[in-house]
Design a protein around this nucleic acid. Sequence first.
DNA 1: CCAATAAGTGTTTTT
DNA 2: CACTTATTGG
Length: 790
Amino acid sequence: MKTLIDYKKELNPPQLEAVKYTESPLLVLAGAGSGKTRVITYKIAYLINECGITPEGILAVTFTNKAANEMKERVEKVIGREVDIWVRTFHSSAVRILRGMAGFFDIDPSFTIVDADDQLSIVKLIIKEMGLDQDIYRPQKYAYLIERAKDRLLFPREAFDSGFSTDPLFYEIYEKYQNKLENENLLDFGDLIFRLVRGLKKNQSALKVLKERFKYVLIDEFQDTNHAQYELVKLLCLPRGNICVVGDDDQSIYGFRGARIENIYNFLKDFPNAKVVKLEQNYRSYRKILSASSSVIDKNPGRMGKKLFTRKGEGENLVFFRAGDDFEEAIYVASQIRKLRNDGYRYSDIAVFYRMNAQSRAFEVIFNRLQIPYRLVGSVRFYDREEIKDIFGYLKILINPYDEVSIRRIASKPPRGIGEKTLDWILKSTVYRGIPIFALKSITSEEENSKKNAEDAYSNNLSSGKDESFRYSGDFVGTGEKVTIPVSKKKQVCGFINLLLELRTAMSELPPTEFIKELYLKSGYLDWLRKNNKIEKIRNLEELYNAIEEYFKTYPEARIEDYVNDASLYQSIDEAGEGADAVLLITLHNAKGLEFPVVFMVGMEAGIFPHYLSSDTIAELEEERRLCYVGMTRAMEKLFMTAAKRRKLFGRTVERDVSCFIRDIPPELLEEDSHFDPYEVGIVYGDYSFGDYQNTLGTKKESLNSDVTYYTRKNRIKMTYSDKPGKSGVETISKKTLKPEEVEVGDRVIHGVYGSGRVWKKDGDVVLIEFDDGKKMSFILKYAPLEKEN
DNA sequence: CCAATAAGTGTTTTT
DNA sequence: CACTTATTGG
């Protein structure tokens, strides 16, 4: 059944043109808030309903998995039925193709994916093996270069020859890294695209299969594609030109990751008969917000140039506030949020954007204190958590028994008597010689054992029988090194291998969710966490279990392998808290594609935004400016920008100037808020750990023994903590509080911090107190250190 | 081998 | 500060 769609009614003229145009390649330049998702959605519907293209024939590439899911849902809503359409990220598409057509690409389909973390540990390992000093030859630098080389489709040799890097060490490290990955059946993020592109170039028949399958290709966020991804696009769509790319050069913010803004400029050259449609009507923001954001982005030269306009009203001026420090900044935002609530906004209408995740802390502390519900996106990504990665470590070994990174990761989690030496031996006996780890079973079996023992005794010139400390030794591939293992470790090694074998059997026999339970228990991992009282981690394992359950409900046919692969590409489970009425705390990068009635852009300070590590080159600064533009254009009705004079970052307090981006905004659009008094918010002082907030209000003094002492304004409370073992802790103020029913207007009270005063007003659990110096402040009774004066 | 402690260190954004 | 790495002592 086909739903009738009135495209003319649903779309404005340029949108309609973009949807309907299929004669040649199409570049849609979609300004912020111009309805680009709408265009893609309707275009897919149009292709299916009006152009006779089957859903399977469409490949739609989005930037994140989340965007992919949303896009698919929207398409299905427009079409009115479920469709089997590929809406995926580049990486997820690549995994699917590589695994599905592994034979074409000379790839073992049981490969596992290494993430950025694993990647770094491999590079570290190599640098260590090469005997290089990690301080001089920084692993992260080489990991970064390897990533970039892969973006550019350069193998080690080619990278060296082409002058990508003339550092012979880089060449060597990259080559060793690549060899390791290949020997251990691992692919990193870059490989996913790299191997696919290489494979398709080499193997025309594979390319033909894909070209026949994908009748039409759509790419979203085209300005953030890298070279390799663009090559893939060209392979699939040249010379046919069955392609539509959508992007905005002003919103390219992933250059640090290899994204090439030029791709969008080059599209017209590479696809010569391409048509361009510009979407310039902004449906999102009031005019003042739009013009302020334009005046920022206007500073960037060489833009393709769109003239965004809005039919929404003028709107209000932007608000700027300069706080004393980061906590005051958070308190200001909190107080504004309270006001907004009074004006009828919901928490979920509001978002706080910052440049780096570290900035979220002050907001978490203050929001908790003031009971403002918030949702934190992406800071510690779920799949990046140690315990989650450990469980994935187990899974990955079972799928790919060559996976050294995972073996290293979990060998001693929980501790099972396998230390560095033993681990070394295990790896050198198996993975390093191209043998799966399970094969150790035979090496450690009894018969083998005695035979080996005899041989070893011989080769080591040891008297057998007497000295049984060496059980196995050998010459190892590539190294020529002899490694020996004390026989005393046999039990531990056998236990480990048997565990893995049992788990492998369980994996193949049990339903996925049952198997996960089995894994938690049999591995001893859960018990280990329990024993050490790691409540949070146990909770996370529960959450993982739920996620897995959910996954297999959605994809009943899937196998654990599919889950592991999919999850390796996902950044967060993300379901938790979604839809709840809560303020969103999010990085600017993560905010791309979202919109909110009210936006707070915080930390608008030189050094933070633009970030001091991204201010060296003009290109970097331009990217920061685009990031600022992206942030500003998320706001629909109100946009607040804040900065702090001082900020505690990396453990020390630094003074900072206001961001240059603030100065790019015409003063007539930006109002400075200078009336704010943090005390009015009723923040309760003394309730923070370790002087978080004390810096704002109190004086900090350091004593000789390096303990830190904080004094409050009135010197009534002293807080100390110590770096010395056994002594860390806070001597806090008395935690005495008053219950609402114990307080009456007019009562004399003593506040632990501010001294004595009189209750001026009482509203449920909030009291307003007039102190003897005349200052009024409100407090939440539950938290305020209050006593009655007697 | 491993837990506990001490010392050292580098600070961004993420598929 | 938050994290990793090195050292120590059982």
